[in-house]
Write a protein that binds this DNA or RNA. Structure first.
Lengths: 215, 215
DNA sequence: ACCTGAACACCGTTCAAGT
DNA sequence: ACCTGAACACCGTTCAAGT
């Protein structure tokens, strides 16, 4: 109302919300989701723990803002593609890249339900591209959900496999051991073909199949 | 070695590991993953917290045992199907049903990497069915991973959508609001077609597409 | 209006001491 | 051999009091 007031209206100084979110994403990338603590984040920002609750009412709200921010760049590469079918593929690849570019990115994304402009804008663009291929509203939304679910699940497993975490290098050895100890002939044979499997190629295969019946 | 010794060899009384796992699954189903606490589990079992660490070295180990136990019944329905292609579909449907039958089942499954007989036996049977359709070892494993990733991602979202949790009914209203406030014409149109969407049908569509190129 | 400092009610995990 | 009881080092969250 008054001219003297700074541009804050409700509570949160919106400028620093972004700053805190960026610091949280940096911390996530360096230490992983399990080590992302409100206290560690506070000291990274240079503030007391309680202060964070002036920016975000809850840790879930922070994680949601992080998920929203993760998607900030994932439309750029696809938006200019003329062929709608190729645009659809580019959108989904962009989502995978966005999630892969932060440690535990898929876990954060799958654990939240952001409704910010990046998330909804992405869903809108993906739906738009699907409609342009000739699908009606219902079919476009179904295909969008399908590829989104697939991408989430795939990157989740990709990042779980990468994780050279606390005891995971042990974990993969244990898997090999368990397969050889037990009676799993198909798994034993497939294991060799699987070592160093190209996960990008696997993702592309899934994406191709899920979009195979596009008009 | 000696005949007097009871059949315990190392540390854990294996009989009660199963009992604790069952109690944990019961607690999970009643209260959800976020409320599954070692202390709550201890009091449900009628024991002190520290005692649980005689059965499981860590909470992660408990969750892994829970994931393994979840898959106990998911092969039964498919194992007798003669047509290999139909058997593949039945295995994946069985996995979805198994995960859906516990609250937060997919979150537990996706967050662990069980290597017990249920998990490996399921993977072995799925691979065997895929080989029988005519796929070679590498192709069978790739398709298996694909449908597994899809199923995980799909049920994860299914259970997140169901969750009439602490503030989620508010959450869906907020989504509708955000879509109508913003400039998302495709999402706004698709929203009506989506309400009460049949998630089982959507899962079947994804499954059909991912297995469409089977020989 | 914003931040500090301190507390509350929890966690997972460990380990002496009992029996 | 197994369990108890109590502690350790943390959590997320809240809130008076300061400025």
């Amino acid at each position: 109302m008054t001219a003297h007031q700074p541009r804050t209206r409700g509570r949160p100084p919106a400028a620093d919300r972004a700053h805190v979110t960026a610091a949280a994403l940096r911390l996530l990338d360096e230490e992983g989701l399990d080590a992302l603590t409100m206290r560690k984040l506070a000291s990274a920002v240079g503030v007391q723990v309680g202060t964070l609750y002036g920016y975000f009412p809850t840790k879930t709200a922070l994680l949601t803002a992080m998920a929203e921010e993760m998607l900030s760049g994932c439309r750029a590469a696809a938006d200019g593609i003329a062929d709608p079918r190729e645009r659809v593929l580019a959108f989904v690849r962009g989502l995978r890249t966005a999630l892969l570019s932060y440690r535990d990115g898929a876990r954060v994304y799958a654990g939240t339900h952001a409704i910010g402009p990046n998330t909804l804008g992405f869903a809108e663009s993906l739906n738009g591209a699907l409609r342009e291929t000739g699908l009606d509203a219902a079919a476009a939304m179904k295909t969008a959900l399908l590829v989104l679910h697939f991408a989430t699940g795939h990157v989740l497993e990709e990042q779980a496999a990468i994780q050279a975490g606390p005891d995971l290098p042990v974990g993969v050895g244990r898997l090999r051991e368990a397969i050889e100890d037990g009676d799993y002939p198909h798994l034993a044979e497939a294991q060799d073909h699987l070592t160093g499997a190209d996960l990008t190629e696997l993702f592309e295969q899934g994406l191709r199949l899920l979009t195979a019946d596009l008009p």
